[in-house]
């Protein structure tokens, strides 16, 4: 396993006679911001579950953070961070309790947790909310906190599943500035989004249609390749061909 954070070849997942992910192959470099785009139902979540070590592929092979996706799923889980739009933090725990819980699960030492928590909260300008119940925070705050929790244990790769879904334009941009800083520290970022301006913020993006990767490249290469003005045009051209819901 060389320089790549993620390498997969012919990754396939079938449920009965339904092929959710259909022979996809790609690599993601260390420290890269990789956008994993596709329509609802294209197979993104299924593929992401395999990459996170939560599900085994029906066919295909690969490595995540240097570990085998078939045999070393536990090592993968320890080396990555994950956040999703749907579930990220416990509403009935405070900000500090959520951090302590996740840090503990990922094996950060007790001695480390406290100073790192203070630093994270200071960076977020959240120090005053340390003992606030997460459930009472606005969505955008929760998402920024969830991201900080997902990278708290300094993972090699962080998976973000629609992290900015429903988040307003200002908070989305603050969120992306956090992503930039994380990537600049060498952490690989693997992100899904339905905001096509955010696709522009990625180093490279792939676009999935009906289980296959139909396009992969830097935003500027995709735009010129498809003769499109922006990433939304590229997406519309590709995803309109989709046949499944």
């Amino acid at each position: 396993m060389g320089e790549n954070a993620i390498e997969v070849r012919n990754l396939t997942k079938r449920f009965g006679d339904f092929t959710a992910v259909d022979h996809i192959s790609f690599t993601v470099g260390k420290g890269e911001i990789f956008g994993f785009l596709g329509a609802n139902g294209a197979g993104k979540s299924t593929a992401m579950k395999i990459l996170c070590g939560l599900s085994l592929p029906t066919e295909g092979e690969g490595t995540v953070a240097g570990y085998d996706i078939l045999k070393e799923t536990e090592s993968i889980k320890k080396s990555i961070g994950y956040m999703s739009q749907r579930f990220s933090l416990y509403d009935d725990l405070t900000v500090a309790e959520n951090i302590r819980l996740y840090a503990g699960i990922y094996g950060v030492s007790d001695k480390e947790i406290s100073p790192r928590t203070d630093k994270v909260l200071a960076n977020l300008d959240f120090t005053a909310e340390k003992n606030t119940m997460v459930g009472s925070l606005p969505l955008g705050w929760k998402q920024k906190l969830a991201f900080s929790v997902a990278v708290f244990h300094h993972p090699k790769i962080v998976f973000l599943d629609e992290p900015t879904g429903g988040v307003d334009p200002v908070t989305r941009r603050q969120f992306w500035e956090m992503i930039y800083k994380t990537a600049d520290k060498g952490i690989t970022v693997f992100v899904t989004t339905h905001y096509m301006d955010e696709a522009e913020y990625c180093d490279r993006v792939s676009i999935m249609v009906d289980g296959r990767i139909e396009a992969l490249g830097s935003p500027s290469a995709l735009k010129s390749g498809f003769g499109a003005n922006n990433m939304d045009d590229v997406f519309q051209k590709l995803a309109r061909k989709a046949e499944r819901g």
Partner: peptide, 13 residues
């Protein structure tokens, strides 16, 4: 109330 949150660009249109 935010009917298109989490919806892909094609379905949103």
């Amino acid at each position: 109330d935010e009917p298109t949150t989490g919806v892909d660009p094609v379905s949103r249109r």
